[in-house]
Measured scan of single mutants.
Amino acid sequence: GLPPGWRKIHDAAGTYYWHVPSGSTQWQRPTW
Rank of each mutant, 00 (worst) to 15 (best):
G1D: 14
G1P: 13
G1I: 10
G1R: 12
G1Y: 09
G1Q: 12
G1H: 12
G1T: 12
L2Q: 07
L2I: 03
L2K: 03
L2D: 05
L2H: 01
L2A: 03
P3N: 01
P3Q: 02
P3W: 05
P3S: 03
P3I: 02
P3A: 03
P3K: 01
P3F: 06
P3R: 02
P3T: 01
P3G: 04
P3Y: 00
P3H: 01
P4T: 06
P4K: 05
P4N: 06
P4H: 08
P4V: 05
P4A: 07
P4I: 05
G5F: 02
G5H: 03
G5Y: 03
G5K: 01
G5P: 07
G5S: 03
G5L: 01
G5R: 00
G5D: 07
G5A: 01
G5E: 04
W6P: 01
W6Y: 00
W6E: 00
W6F: 01
W6H: 01
W6Q: 03
W6I: 00
W6R: 00
W6T: 03
W6G: 02
R7T: 13
R7P: 05
R7D: 07
R7K: 13
R7G: 03
R7L: 15
R7H: 12
R7A: 09
R7E: 13
R7W: 09
R7Y: 13
K8F: 11
K8M: 15
K8I: 15
K8L: 14
K8H: 10
K8N: 04
K8Y: 11
K8W: 09
K8S: 08
I9M: 12
I9G: 05
I9F: 04
I9Q: 06
I9R: 05
I9Y: 04
I9H: 05
I9A: 05
I9W: 06
I9D: 04
H10I: 14
H10R: 11
H10G: 07
H10E: 15
H10T: 15
H10N: 10
H10V: 15
H10P: 05
H10Y: 10
H10K: 12
H10D: 14
D11Q: 06
D11T: 15
D11S: 15
D11F: 07
D11P: 00
D11I: 11
D11K: 08
D11V: 10
D11H: 10
D11E: 08
D11M: 09
A12H: 10
A12M: 10
A12R: 09
A12I: 11
A12K: 13
A12V: 11
A12W: 09
A12T: 10
A12F: 08
A12L: 09
A12Y: 06
A12N: 11
A13V: 12
A13L: 14
A13R: 14
A13I: 12
A13F: 15
A13M: 14
A13W: 14
A13S: 14
A13G: 12
G14V: 07
G14R: 06
G14H: 07
G14P: 03
G14F: 08
G14L: 05
G14K: 06
G14M: 06
G14Y: 06
T15Y: 08
T15A: 10
T15W: 10
T15F: 09
T15V: 13
T15S: 09
T15E: 11
T15L: 08
T15G: 08
Y16E: 03
Y16N: 02
Y16D: 02
Y16Q: 04
Y16S: 02
Y16H: 06
Y16F: 08
Y16M: 06
Y17L: 02
Y17P: 03
Y17F: 07
Y17T: 00
Y17N: 00
Y17S: 00
Y17G: 00
W18F: 14
W18P: 02
W18K: 12
W18L: 15
W18H: 10
W18A: 08
W18D: 03
W18Y: 15
W18Q: 13
W18S: 07
H19V: 01
H19K: 05
H19W: 03
H19R: 01
H19I: 01
V20W: 12
V20G: 07
V20H: 06
V20M: 10
V20E: 14
V20I: 11
V20Y: 11
P21R: 04
P21Y: 07
P21S: 07
P21Q: 07
P21G: 06
P21L: 08
P21D: 09
P21H: 07
S22L: 05
S22I: 02
S22W: 02
S22H: 04
S22T: 14
S22P: 03
S22E: 02
S22Q: 01
S22N: 02
S22F: 03
S22R: 02
S22V: 03
G23Y: 04
G23S: 04
G23H: 02
G23F: 02
G23P: 00
G23V: 00
G23L: 03
S24W: 15
S24M: 15
S24H: 15
S24K: 15
S24E: 13
S24Y: 14
S24R: 15
T25P: 04
T25D: 05
T25K: 15
T25F: 14
T25H: 09
T25S: 09
T25Q: 09
T25R: 13
T25E: 06
T25W: 13
Q26W: 06
Q26E: 06
Q26T: 10
Q26P: 01
Q26A: 07
W27S: 13
W27T: 14
W27R: 13
W27Q: 13
W27M: 13
W27D: 09
W27G: 07
W27I: 15
W27Y: 13
Q28L: 10
Q28R: 09
Q28Y: 10
Q28W: 12
Q28E: 15
Q28K: 08
Q28I: 09
Q28T: 12
R29A: 11
R29F: 11
R29T: 10
R29Q: 11
R29V: 13
R29E: 13
R29H: 11
P30N: 01
P30M: 00
P30S: 00
P30Q: 01
P30E: 02
P30R: 00
P30W: 01
P30G: 02
P30I: 00
T31D: 11
T31F: 08
T31E: 13
T31W: 07
T31A: 11
T31G: 10
T31L: 12
T31P: 07
T31Y: 10
T31V: 11
W32D: 09
W32P: 08
W32A: 09
W32T: 10
W32F: 12
W32K: 08
W32Q: 10
W32I: 10
W32Y: 10
W32R: 07
